[in-house]
Design a protein around this nucleic acid. Structure first.
Lengths: 334, 334
DNA sequence: CTGTTAGCGCCTTCAT
DNA sequence: ATGAAGGCGCTAACAG
């Protein structure tokens, strides 16, 4: 691999000059610029990114920490992340947080060691206060996705979870449903708590008693949605079902079908996320659209802004949007 | 951020010694080792990865180039990639190839500039010979996934596409089907060509004429599978349908359902990939299981092996495996 | 407009 | 067992 000095020799100039034409920093006579270009060409020279980063204190790199790579949700997030990084002229480094605060911390440290310009962390388990402290102590800007940290609203990207779940539940209530079951995500996750809160508040606002037996926990996967729905069917009767994830709704579809129950005639089903599959399920799934792309783009723009030392405004929570399709109807039995 | 010299001063030793305790290279008296550790501790020192890489010519980093992040296929791949990288003690850098040979080349170069120890490239469009040449010229080892490069079998990971498609088609033939339609992936992709070949060969082996009108192209997505199936339904009649992707099968399910056709009573459907959803579709989808995890693991192990300058054996193509579920049955009409 | 000179933070012989 | 010194390849003042 040719190095900068090789270029210097061949072009008959100093390293400073080569550096100048490389980075367009400072004036260079056109003729010498050409000479340098030629040398670069014939030597097939490419600057060493590590050396550049070490000397300039910028690596043009942004790190992304995720703990789940499967499923369209994170696929969409990842795709937008690569695009945003691209647009900002940054390299994206993706690392696994293993759904564990300790390992997420390790990941952050590795990224810092690699001198990332900024870090985007999608964490489900790290406590808010620990996250806030981490962000404050870190030598590079860190944006937390999937959080609303009111102490540092310019570092967090969140979805208005409570109102989104409220919206879906209320919609079912308006259709006359009173027995509304729920398949939640793992309840130890803040996201699940918030959605459950929205679900409960909507019911209570209508004077419908919340029965804990109507709530079953899944693990965000299709199989877990299937199992959770079977448990519910064995335990209680309901005319509507809210699933806190489209995947779990997919599993529920199967469980319902196996019981000979028809959607929405016998049971209305509401999902969450608006996964690409939702519109093609049979029947098409009504769900809450989550603007993942927009949120991801915002996260990266903010990260890049902070990395550049620019002003970075606080970011308001994003709103979910109801997408009504075929899986819900007015109540027909109760 | 504390640096190595800070540690030196505090511990009263030289950089060499600090380096030794850091990397466990060379002997150090136990007492001084402790002193160094303490200094590191109190200074909260973390070595600069860039500087380490620059000086040692190893970055403990492996690059992965992908052009698609959506869908469970790449989700699974990505998850395994992070795991494999982890196990090898490497950082994973994921970059977008944008489904374009030119941009894939850019991505490779950026990774080389960052001094990755090895690169794994999942390319769908770069011609074989260009790929081979690239691999030969590159200063770091590159493993091509989704390819069988017989010139360099130690650098390519492939699935036996032809036989997999053959297997599925033959199975349908054995059930008595003769009118077997096909929704293919974009035909300009080598993968699609190979699968089509398997499909055609199976039919011909049974003396069934291959009708081009029975073949429709999709784009690997649910919506495209839906559209392709609708076109087929408007054009020809068939008792079985082979989809070269489970996603497209999902779309086809919906199209079939809209026409009032039942699976498998009216039409048998065969998928490809064995996505997590396959077992939960209604009816559960019969498909070809592709060992993505195993292939990915192998790719990374090979990459790491090569990066370490070790022996790296040639890698035989992986085999698909039929997974039979509810979506196929003996022919009932024709 | 261009060259000189220090670093950036660490690794790595080679002495001692 | 430890230290001194010279890179790794590039950027960034500062002169000229």
């Amino acid at each position: 691999m040719a190095t900068m000095v090789d270029v210097c020799r061949l072009a008959g100039v100093s390293k400073a000059t080569v550096s100048r034409v490389l980075n367009n920093t400072g004036p260079v006579k056109e003729s010498t610029r050409q000479a340098v270009y030629e040398a670069i060409q014939t030597l097939n020279y490419r600057p060493n990114g590590l050396a550049q980063a070490l000397a300039s204190h910028r690596s043009d790199t942004v790190g992304l920490i995720l703990s789940n790579f499967t499923g369209s949700y994170f696929g969409t997030l990842l795709r937008q992340a690569t695009r945003s990084a691209d647009e900002a002229g940054k390299q994206l480094i993706v690392t696994d947080g293993h759904d564990d605060p300790k390992r997420e911390l390790d990941a952050v440290n590795m990224l810092v060691d690699r001198r990332c310009d900024a870090i985007v962390l999608y964490s489900r388990h790290m406590p808010d206060d620990q996250l806030v402290q981490l962000i404050r102590e870190l030598p590079v800007p860190l944006i937390a996705m999937n959080r609303y940290l009111q102490a540092i609203p310019d570092r967090s990207i969140a979805l208005a979870q409570v109102s989104a779940a409220h919206m879906a539940t209320e919609y079912l209530l308006n259709l006359g449903h009173r027995r509304i079951a729920c398949i939640t995500r793992p309840v130890h996750q803040p996201t699940a708590q918030a959605r459950l809160q929205g679900y409960r508040e909507a019911l209570l606002a209508r004077g419908v008693k919340v029965e804990e037996t109507m709530i079953e926990e899944g693990a965000n996967t299709i199989p877990s949605g299937y199992e959770a729905c079977k448990k519910l069917l064995d335990r209680v009767s309901f005319s509507a079902l809210v699933c806190f994830t489209d995947y779990m709704a997919e599993g529920a579809y199967r469980a319902l079908s196996e019981k000979g129950l028809r959607i929405p005639d016998d049971v209305s089903v509401f999902g969450f996320d608006d996964a690409p599959v939702a519109a093609y399920m049979v029947p098409a799934l009504s769900t809450i659209h989550v603007p993942i792309e927009e949120m991801t783009r915002t996260a990266f723009e903010q990260a890049v802004r902070l990395a550049a030392g620019k002003e970075a405004p606080p970011i308001a929570p994003f709103q979910g949007r109801m997408v009504l399709r075929e899986s819900v109807s007015v109540v027909r039995k109760n």
